[in-house]
């Protein structure tokens, strides 16, 4: 394998890892706050991609405007989803809210088939993004460079919000002790909404970028990435944002590299995530960056 080919694989791994990381953060943040696995998160990712698609094709917006509008709308949708499907069950046994999450996921997928149609749609990738550029020995499409770049930017903003702002401080407080946060006059509902908003925003961005990189949409496109990113969050240590990012890049990297170096195994591409999950859970059940937590009574 030549150096230039290796570098190309690294660019691909970084860009797939970025997409995984963006989605995994949504799982981990919601879990951190509500101890809920938001099974509908992968479908929010799908929704983001479709909204941008219709923005470009139906309303003929410029792609960047469609991107921004789709992100905002999807974030609002995520907030609404929590209000309707999860909030009424917040004081119910944990299994109820989990079933509601699975139901929400199936509902969104079926609605997707009903409204968007089951037939895959080709995405008109903006010319700027699909252009091939050469940097030294590496030639790659612009989108594969843009994805990691924007991802790092968004991560920096997220880290700033969580660690340096009042709302971020409240998020960290709510994630350890909801009741004590209430006693500090923290509006817990607002914090939960904010968390769902951020998670859905990142998923929408990921979904749209995904649709520019692999330019085909179908209503079930969120299922596999959603499952893998849930695994990425668990591998990294669910509840930890750094863990979700690490898990996402790890998963993306391994997937690309195994296919690159062992092409005979490329048919098993999707299985690697599960193998990695099993290994990590056997060796370190709390995930790579997860902390052992004693269950509160």
């Amino acid at each position: 394998m030549t150096l230039s080919l290796l570098l190309q694989h690294i660019v691909n791994a970084l860009s797939l890892g970025s997409l995984y990381a963006l989605i995994a953060i949504g799982y981990t943040m919601v879990y951190g706050i509500l101890r809920l696995i938001n099974f509908a998160h992968g479908d929010v990712f799908m929704l983001g991609a479709y909204v941008a698609f219709y923005g470009i094709t139906l309303v003929s917006l410029p792609w960047w405007a469609a991107l921004l509008i789709a992100i905002v709308l999807t974030a609002m949708f995520g907030i609404g989803l929590e209000r309707v499907a999860y909030k009424p069950l917040r004081d119910s046994p944990r299994i109820s809210i989990m079933i509601s999450a699975i139901g929400a996921s199936f509902l969104l997928e079926s609605l997707g088939v009903l409204i968007f149609g089951g037939r895959p749609k080709g995405v008109p990738v903006p010319e700027v993004l699909s252009r091939v550029i050469r940097i030294g020995p590496v030639s790659t499409v612009v989108i594969s460079l843009i994805i990691p770049l924007f991802t790092f930017g968004l991560l920096a903003v997220l880290v700033y919000i969580v660690n340096r702002t009042k709302t971020g401080m409240a998020m960290r407080a709510v994630s350890t002790d909801i009741e004590a946060s209430r006693l500090m006059a923290v509006d817990v509902n607002r914090i939960v909404s904010f968390t769902f908003g951020i998670g859905s925003l990142l998923a929408a961005f990921g979904g749209i970028m995904w649709s520019f990189k692999y330019p085909q949409l179908n209503p079930l496109m969120g299922v596999m990435p959603g499952l893998k990113c849930f695994i990425a969050a668990v591998i990294g240590g669910i509840g930890s944002i750094g863990g979700a990012v690490l898990g996402g890049f790890l998963l993306g990297g391994i997937e690309i590299m195994i296919v690159a170096f062992l092409p005979t195994l490329s048919g098993y591409r999707d299985a690697f995530a599960f193998v990695l999950l099993i290994v990590v859970l056997l060796v370190k059940p709390t995930g790579l960056l997860g902390k052992r937590q004693t269950e509160k009574v």
Binding site: M169, S175, T176, D177, A180, S181, L183, M184, A185
Partner: peptide, 30 residues
């Protein structure tokens, strides 16, 4: 709480993952 009634709960319930200063800032959240 915003009307000036505050509870120091049983078992203290400070936020273990926040610094001492952040804990105090949260007290002034409102």
């Amino acid at each position: 709480v915003e009307q000036g009634i505050v509870l120091v709960p049983e078992g203290r319930r400070i936020f273990p993952n926040l610094t001492v200063e952040e804990n105090l800032f949260l007290g002034a959240y409102a």
